[in-house]
Write a protein that binds this DNA or RNA. Sequence first.
DNA 1: CGTAGCCTTGAAGGTGATCAATGTTTGTGG
DNA 2: CCACAAACATTGATCACCTTCAAGGCTACG
Lengths: 232, 232
Amino acid sequence: MKSCSKPALSAALNELKAFPIFQNYSIERLCDLCTGAEILICKHREVVFKFADDANRFGVVLSGAFKLSRPTVVGEDAVIHFSSPGDVVGALIMAQPNPKYPVTLTAMGPSRYLSIPKNNFVQHWSNDSELIMNIQALLSTRMNNFHAQKAMLKSPAAARIAELLIKLADQSNPDELLIKIPLTRKEIADNLGLTVESVIRIMSDWSKQEYIKTSDQIITILKPEKLLSFIS
Amino acid sequence: MKSCSKPALSAALNELKAFPIFQNYSIERLCDLCTGAEILICKHREVVFKFADDANRFGVVLSGAFKLSRPTVVGEDAVIHFSSPGDVVGALIMAQPNPKYPVTLTAMGPSRYLSIPKNNFVQHWSNDSELIMNIQALLSTRMNNFHAQKAMLKSPAAARIAELLIKLADQSNPDELLIKIPLTRKEIADNLGLTVESVIRIMSDWSKQEYIKTSDQIITILKPEKLLSFIS
DNA sequence: CGTAGCCTTGAAGGTGATCAATGTTTGTGG
DNA sequence: CCACAAACATTGATCACCTTCAAGGCTACG
């Protein structure tokens, strides 16, 4: 993981402007919001921060993807959430007196992350109600995903995997959904509370039927309607 | 469900002041925040609002308890969350253009709920950054609960039930934890994605061993350490 | 007094976990 | 560039946990 120089930072501000939550913000304002920020260039599997560490920074996903995970009693990690570009990470806890990170943040494939000091949140972010509302909107969708997954706990494994894949897929081309995140079967399993083997059995079946295909850990959903039929 | 008169409302403002998120607020300010609000007196199992209905009001739990649930594909309801007094419900979605309720809100035992019009949120709540931050703190703990439960998906049913009961219990007397919410085995099952029968088998076993006791749907944890031993 | 909601128990069955072994791909250092 | 390790994917056999289905009892309440 290496951080970046000043000029790259100002380039990143333009990237921020492309994300929905910063749309109405001028470059100058973004500059204030990102005082002392640095861009982290992360390689695959690189860890940005760890569960239970002191949280003195939060951030925004610039490119690639990250997973939020948390250790379980048995030592393995449970994947809590997959974060895509534009997602804000760790902001919720910045207002606490002595925050600890509630999750571990790990890059999935080469990714970039804008890391922002905690002080900034207190000084510039927390009193900007529009910004806070925008972050709440992000949280709202994330919360909604939790709800949806919780409502599917009783559904068979196939249904839950199908739901996850469809939710992670880019919806821009409805015929052939592409999941832009390099996704391991183990990560799918850890996200749904299943074992790798179960996930593999179900997904290789789908591959044989050509409902999905995998190359280089990039999954494409060839027949979304088939996957959807597992959900209901 | 019946709503209440004006004088009762002003009494409720004092109740609000007792909750952490409103501690620093004057009665006058609370009066502004609660313009057009009404107190709903709910009986057991009474529904305040339904999943997918137009969300034109949000609110605060005053007394008793409520469950947030959501219909599943099979028709049954999954319980998403149990709300206690001081909990804010529906605030996250008020900022959306045409919000729908993401859950059904149902009273558990006789309860009281302060229902506040959506307009209030836009006019008085959303630009009060201290208030919004306080609500975020609430959400933060709720989110944390989701994380914790998700991390336990691979644990056996007994562990997940133990975790839920301990989390719901009042921690003021550490020797004998009391769960103040009238809680059905079915509701526990629906919250954890189990069946009633499984929950009953595990909990009656605990009752026989005198780890817990139930009277009138009020559960007391007699031996917290025994339950904790299931979790790890 | 009957219905509705909740709790209980038993038997049978299935889904997904566990364990074990092997193949494949990716990445790294000599 | 090759050798070797590490991460990832796969397959099969067995088994446990939880579900499903069915039946019955208890209590509250109109």
